[in-house]
Design a binder for these strands. Structure first.
Lengths: 225, 225, 225, 225
DNA sequence: AATGAATGAGAATTCATTCAT
DNA sequence: TATGAATGAATTCTCATTCAT
């Protein structure tokens, strides 16, 4: 792993062209999945010949992986821009939720691509991409969770790693719920056909859920009763 | 939707054969995904001719769907057997978590199949399956959540539907983390390479997280500070 | 090596069909060489679909190899039928030469196929086929050379193995000269544009050459002078 | 035929570059054969652009042919340098055999190229190249055979042309046996796995074979018995 | 009911050659 | 002269599906 996934010719190519190729690839892959995406179609839609496509990429898989990496990078930037200001933890959570709700069509393709690798089973690739992708959000969350703990915004009887895991799991699921067809329907089954008309409600409920999970220790529970 | 996904011949066939065909299908589909599964291979492994396979099923997709329904049914039975006794909510949660951790090879194939439909995008099918599959757990959770609320085991300022959604999201993610390669790696990134050696810790942390989320209302928070 | 080069389906196929497929293959491969032969064309000319072709053979190369083996077998039968009677060595040589001259169109395709493997460079395959093919003629020649030596028809100061090698080299070259375009022209360059009109002359000259090579020892040379 | 096989631009090019291009071509063609050689790779390895390559040569085939001619020329020089001194015929034969045994890596590429045209079937080209290539050795051999006959070193009942043909056939086969993979294995089948460790034996046996073939007439045979 | 031979459209990939710069 | 980006026809191989028996 950790190789380059395009040939030098692609790096030399005009940036606009690179962008077109990757975006076209992301389109196809997110619409049809890896297997059903047709690289000849991608070439045609990107306005280049199939021969040139193969001058740029060794295989269909390499193109897919580069599209994926592009998607990761852009998603990452979204997260970073959301998290950059120095907010309290619940404010950050709220910002993330709202960012997810405003996921544009462009970003939703990235999420679909992400959902696509979820099925990969090649051991090395899976490990490589899991670390690459999940590492980003893990570090982002781990950072502010630790600070929150120090500052007393979060109870101290929790294991930050697990906490980050549960936190991310909820956000990831929400992310899918706003982008992938199946998860959308699942969301509706649970929360009603009109969830998507009621973003505020979603924010509120999730924050409520998180807040108490963040705040209370076992000790508090005993105290309270 | 809501059509039958096999021809009459399959219903007339010997139950043992039906079982073999479906289990073989589940094997292949969960191993290779829908696209890469080969129906001719499934027929061979099931010990019947490809011709007969097409006497049983209109298309490869129909076979897949029937395998999926079989998987759903069996998964459902697992959930029901776990939830049948009349436990308090946290005990139920614990039982579910432990059931997920003990997911056998057989069941893990079902989970992979489930992960597979997650990518479907045919509108009608997606709706049909989301309702079918998610409806099961939704009703299961909704039922006991409501009771828990009535009995005061759960705070009363929450919307049960959302609550069930967050609850299921955490369990679903955990389920994937114990079965699908990518999610396994993600789990390790967050919680350490040895998470899979430490089932108790996982149970404990998740219960801790859930308990406070279940228990405390906003009012409590104000009281506490 | 030493694997089977066709799938079971080919063995089950109708013998007439098998024959057609192999002969069509031999045609194409001998006309265009391995690289330029087109397996889709072979299928079409053999009157079967390309799909079926791949039910019969794993790869284009496997088909080629089976064609080759078929050719070897048939060539071998020609040699054996020529050599079966119990002749003196020069009579055998003469029969072989005449057989080569009468090489039919059918057999000439086999020779071209043989010339084709001559360029192979995959170590294992080369060894396997060299042993398989050359072993046949080697054993055929070695057998009767040994007998000839014992019976005094051939001088005793020679190493039979080398002798067989030189003998076969001359016959092989002659074989090519009667079948492969380039070697035909080479033959004409050396022996005149009309060599092919004068089979008797060829027989006579080669026998003359062989006879003295067979007959005289170094001792004889000294005696003579 | 007898056209030029490069464009004027190639003739105007720097001699060092010409040399590089041809040697690189010879490398590729002898390693992979005509079909599998990649002209874009040849250009890259020769350090020029593919565009320039096509300024130099009309087609891939033309490049091949020029490489071939270069190879012929160099092989020819080897033969000539071996044959230039005024030796008796068996001494010449010995020198040729030893030259073949010492074929360097460079020359072996020429031989492989030669083996490659052996499969050509375009009538005109075949004739042209057969005459060009075989003419060289034919004239070389014919010349000294004639002299040998006049001087009584060779029996007089033979047809020099056929004699030259048989002589060259033996040497050509030996040449292939020292360079082409398949023929190497064939050599081992006939003469033992260790032939290549025993050059002297090879020289001796072939000379023995040739000597008697050269020396004795039918008349001698009758005399002797 | 059951077989499995047969089909052929479709997809990934290669590479000789062209052409704008 | 020199470049190398660009082309696209051609080829191998796969597999869902059909159909004669």
């Amino acid at each position: 792993m950790e190789q380059k996934h395009c040939k030098p010719a692609f790096e030399r190519a005009d940036p606009a062209r690179r962008e077109t190729v990757l975006q076209t690839g992301i389109n196809e892959f997110s619409q049809h999945g890896f297997e059903n995406a047709n690289i000849n179609v991608i070439a045609k839609n990107a306005g280049i010949s199939i021969g040139l496509m193969y001058k740029y990429f060794e295989t269909k898989e390499d193109l897919f992986i580069l599209c994926l990496e592009q998607a990761i990078e852009e998603l990452n930037q979204v997260i970073e821009s959301v998290l950059q200001s120095d907010d309290k933890i619940l404010v950050r959570a709220e910002k993330l939720i709202r960012a997810i709700q405003q996921t544009s069509g462009k970003e939703s393709r990235y999420v679909k691509l992400y959902n696509e690798i979820t099925k990969m089973s090649d051991e090395d690739k899976v490990r490589y991409y899991a670390e690459k992708i999940e590492g980003i959000s893990y570090r982002a969350y781990a950072g502010f969770l630790e600070r929150a703990k120090e500052e007393g915004d979060v109870r101290d009887d929790l294991d930050e790693r697990f906490f980050a895991f549960f936190f991310d799991s909820l956000l990831m699921t929400l992310q899918f719920s706003y982008t992938c067809d199946y998860y959308r329907e699942r969301f509706k089954v649970y929360c009603g056909d009109d969830v998507f008309d009621n973003d505020e409600k979603v924010v509120e409920e999730l924050l409520k859920f998180l807040e108490s999970a963040f705040t209370f220790s076992r000790g508090d529970i005993q105290k309270l009763h």
